[in-house]
Amino acid sequence: MTRKIVHIDMDAFYASVELRENPQLKGLPVVVAWDSIRSVIVAASYEARKYGLRSAMSVRRARELCPHAIYIAPNFTLYRDVSRQVRGIFQRYTDRIEPLSLDEAYLDVTVNNKGIASATEVARRIQEDIFLETSLTASAGVAPNKFLAKIASDWNKPNGICVIPPSKVMSFLQDLPLEKIPGVGRVTLAKFHRLQMKTIADLRLRSEWELTHHFGRYGRRLYELARGIDLREVDTNQQSQQISTETT
C-alpha cells in the first residue's frame, strides 16, 4: 500500500504567535529575540524577512538590515502551550505522528481516524482546524513519503498546500535544486557544485557507486532520494525537539 504522508509546518510560528498576542503589530517587521547585539534571532515575521532577516541571524546584523524592526523577547511557555494545542488537532485525525519541533510534524494518514480517503482533504481540514482554534496558519505537504512531504510543505508558504501524487514524483523532482534536499548544508552543496551537480536531475545521472565514493554512506541515500525513494516510517516514538536560543 502506498503511504499517505502529510507534513505540517506552522508559518513563522513564534513570530505568528506573538503577532496574535499583539495584533497592533501586524504588518510590521517583528523579530522574536532578546534586544541585544549579542543575541540571535529566534524567528522573524514575513514582513521582517523581506529585509533579509531570518532565524539564527545575529541581532547585530539584523539591526543593520532593518533598523526599525520591533523586538519581542521569546516566550517558550506560550509556544509550547500552542504547540500542544496543535498536536491535539493532529490526534483527531491520526495516531501516527512524528513531531520534529514545536512547529512541525509528520503525519501518516494512510489509515486515519476519520476514515477520509483523500490525504489532501485531511491536510485541508487540519489547516482549517488550526486556523479556527488558534488563529494561526500552517502549510502542508502531501506525498507518498516523508522526504517529498517535507519539501512540499515549503512550496506554497504561507498557508498553502502542495500535493505530490505518486505519478508526479519524478517530474516534480527533475528540476529541483539540490539545496532543497532536507539536511543539505553549505558544505555538501559546495561539494555538489564542484562535481557539476545543481539539480536532482544531475544527481540522478550518477551511479550509486559514484555517489558512495564521494559521499560515503550518505551517497546511498542520495541515490534513493534522487529517485523519490524514502522508506522511513513515521516514527511515533520520536520526541519533539525544542528549539533553544542563546546569547553568543
Score class of each variant (00 low, 15 high):
residue 182 P to A: 00
residue 73 A to E: 10
residue 82 V to M: 01
residue 62 A to L: 06
residue 76 F to C: 04
residue 126 I to L: 07
residue 126 I to C: 09
residue 97 I to Y: 11
residue 78 L to E: 12
residue 90 F to W: 07
residue 144 P to E: 03
residue 131 F to G: 01
residue 146 K to G: 05
residue 79 Y to D: 02
residue 157 K to S: 10
residue 111 V to G: 01
residue 98 E to Q: 09
residue 120 T to R: 11
residue 91 Q to C: 05
residue 128 E to R: 14
residue 141 G to V: 02
residue 150 K to M: 04
residue 119 A to D: 06
residue 90 F to E: 05
residue 121 E to Y: 11
residue 185 G to V: 10
residue 63 R to N: 14
residue 166 P to F: 05
residue 182 P to F: 00
residue 178 L to F: 12
residue 65 L to K: 02
residue 149 A to Y: 10
residue 175 D to Y: 11
residue 163 V to R: 04
residue 154 D to G: 10
residue 104 E to H: 02
residue 151 I to S: 03
residue 58 S to C: 05
residue 118 S to W: 08
residue 158 P to I: 11
residue 126 I to H: 01
residue 126 I to S: 03
residue 143 A to K: 12
residue 81 D to M: 09
residue 104 E to V: 00
residue 154 D to Y: 07
residue 153 S to Q: 09
residue 91 Q to P: 02
residue 116 I to D: 01
residue 96 R to Y: 09
residue 180 K to D: 08
residue 157 K to I: 03
residue 85 Q to L: 13
residue 79 Y to W: 09
residue 56 A to G: 02
residue 63 R to W: 14
residue 56 A to K: 08
residue 57 M to F: 12
residue 72 I to S: 04
residue 69 A to W: 03
residue 127 Q to W: 05
residue 76 F to M: 15
residue 63 R to P: 01
residue 154 D to V: 07
residue 155 W to M: 15
residue 172 F to V: 13
residue 82 V to T: 11
residue 178 L to N: 03
residue 149 A to K: 05
residue 168 K to A: 13
residue 100 L to E: 02
residue 176 L to K: 11
residue 89 I to E: 07
residue 187 V to E: 13
residue 134 T to L: 01
residue 52 G to N: 05
residue 84 R to M: 10
residue 68 H to V: 04
residue 134 T to K: 12
residue 73 A to T: 10
residue 76 F to E: 07
residue 130 I to V: 09
residue 52 G to S: 08
residue 61 R to P: 02
residue 131 F to D: 07
residue 94 T to G: 11
residue 108 D to I: 10
residue 97 I to G: 07
residue 154 D to M: 09
residue 155 W to K: 14
residue 174 Q to E: 12
residue 120 T to L: 06
residue 183 G to R: 00
residue 171 S to R: 15
residue 186 R to F: 06
residue 178 L to D: 03
residue 152 A to Y: 02
residue 140 A to T: 13
residue 164 I to L: 09
residue 174 Q to C: 06
residue 116 I to W: 13
residue 168 K to E: 14
residue 79 Y to L: 02
residue 151 I to T: 04
residue 65 L to E: 00
residue 156 N to H: 13
residue 74 P to L: 15
residue 134 T to M: 11
residue 134 T to N: 07
residue 157 K to E: 09
residue 152 A to K: 03
residue 132 L to M: 14
residue 179 E to F: 15
residue 120 T to C: 13
residue 129 D to E: 14
residue 75 N to H: 13
residue 181 I to M: 04
residue 64 E to H: 14
residue 184 V to E: 05
residue 117 A to D: 14
residue 82 V to Y: 08
residue 92 R to K: 15
residue 126 I to P: 14
residue 162 C to M: 09
residue 175 D to F: 13
residue 57 M to C: 00
residue 70 I to K: 05
residue 88 G to N: 14
residue 95 D to F: 05
residue 52 G to P: 00
residue 92 R to F: 00
residue 99 P to W: 08
residue 96 R to N: 10
residue 138 A to Q: 09
residue 130 I to Q: 01
residue 175 D to W: 15
